[in-house]
Design a protein around this nucleic acid. Sequence first.
RNA 1: GGGGUGGUAGUUCAGCUGGUUAGAACGCCGGCCUGUCACGUCGGAGGUCGCGGGUUCGAGCCCCGUCCACCCCGCCA
Length: 599
Amino acid sequence: MIRDKGCGEVKETDIGSVMSLSGWVFRRRDHGGLIFIDLRDRSGLCQVVFSPDVSRESHEEAHDLRAEYVISVSGEMRKRPEGTENPNIPTGNVEMYVKKLEVLNESSPLPYSMEEAADAGEALRFKHRYLDLRRPEMQRNLIMRHGISKVMRDYLDEKGFLEIETPMLTKSTPEGARDYLVPSRLNPGHFYALPQSPQLFKQILMVSGLEKYFQIVKCFRDEDLRADRQPEFTQVDLEISFADREDILQLIEGMMKTLFKNMLDTDIETPFHRLTFHESMERFGNDKPDLRFGLELKDMADLAWKGTFKVFLDALQNRGIVKAINGKGMASLSRKEIDMLTSEAQSFGAKGLAWIKVKSASGGFESPIAKFFPEEILRKMAERLEAEDGDLMLFVADKPKVTYDVLSRMRLSLGERLNLIKPGFKFTWITDFPLLEWDEEESRFQAMHHPFTSPMNEDAEKMLTGDINDKEMLSSLRAKAYDIVLNGYEIGGGSIRIHRQAVQKKMFEILDISDEDARVKFGFLLDALQYGAPPHGGIALGLDRLVMIMVGAASIRDVIAFPKTQKAVCLMSGAPSVVEPKQLKELHIKTDVQLDFKT
RNA sequence: GGGGUGGUAGUUCAGCUGGUUAGAACGCCGGCCUGUCACGUCGGAGGUCGCGGGUUCGAGCCCCGUCCACCCCGCCA
């Protein structure tokens, strides 16, 4: 027995007993006569004491201990002498007097100190990830992630779901994100793709009559990375037969409620807040609003028409919009500070930022554009924005896309700066997404979610009977698609799928995908759908993002054991790497880049 | 592909307007130390200033290029 219990688990009831502990040397305090070691393992810290009065030999050996040596110690647990207790650690009332020390393994000096590891650069932490993961904070994250997965798995099991694995080596689909490709040795010139999600397979499972499927599964997308995006990430993926939207939403609400209760002892309000896509855009400027604070966008078009400010009028005449937010208490900003706000808005894509200071105390409104509006209109603007004395009204006038984008980002930026973001967890569903999205570049419609997403019941007939060139009508179609948003992050999304062949056919027609194309791209699913597909739908949750938010991490890299850098490189393993010419030859692959073959 | 921030000792950073021997703290190595818990104390070692080029009498500092990490846009649902 190398240890009797974890370092963090020793208690006062252990006083008097002789036991063994094992772990890493965290800190060493060598007083010459007495040596203290903080011994660390996954469970926590315990102080062990080396005294020549207990064992001359162990005391002698302990001089040579260094940070991160792996040791096993045995001896008597004693109560710490009065006045030497350490209230900062749970085991602070006891300590072990070491009779016998065994060095299980030595450690080279560390590339960076364990105590300052949190401040070390990420590049260094990634290179020596094994050390980074020794840190209690990182271990907490991974332990939490394990617990979160387990609660969701248990919940779904309880609800009758089956966890079914789907292939990792699968077929490339041209829609959506870029695929990671895997060459097939047995089929020269042919490639598998790693799944972007198990979408097609889980629908097949519904056709197969498995009825309730889930999987906690890796997905792969070869796109550029962000703080909340990795090339491989984990989804909690599920699909249900004979279900409509409400069934899915309620299932997930129940799951989140259980999850937050079990893992964080937090009560989540259900049913969740709901916003239609349209309303979310109007009020927050995006489809993943952070509802922990207000600062909502207000429409100013009607008031803008009543002034003579050319920028506003031009925007409105060119199918643009005028929207504003209220910078609470920001009227005290200097001209220079407002200029900085303006350049921030410009960096978000705005041409400019119009502003009006509300100074009711000193008689009204202060702004370069105030002169373009009658006093009464200015008052109405303030009223609509609930702007009081000392507030700063900020306006953007542009095409809807630009205006929403700029103001949604200004809203977030101001929310942070003004410290408006309340702690806690604010969920919302975003529903009634448009079914289709106009692609300017290719001048055709694309499925906003994916081509198997069902239109809303009210819209299905309109779609079936409508003209596929009626852009207006097509743009107005809404989908049975939904996203779940938590604190401004999209943590999942799904839809009810089309199960009527006529609707699916029409969908492909609208998307300008020929029968032939459809066969090539989605053949096996289309085949399957012919043989009695039940109505079905599902959702996929981004596990990494969810865990990130729950543990309060700033990046999903902190909740993934072995993450990759922004260039999708693993600094620890060195992947990706060049491979031997022999391997390429076997795969019938030639590259057009000259590389050195070194291992 | 584009915009931004950073890269100086093992680590985290400072380094002025270009100026002669590049600093601090922590860590590391050695000594002393029987109640510390970020122990203390005395001494010591440690630098391709990311890399390449340029300007200059002189470059860590200025210019050009390039690489790496991070944040964002595009991309991605």
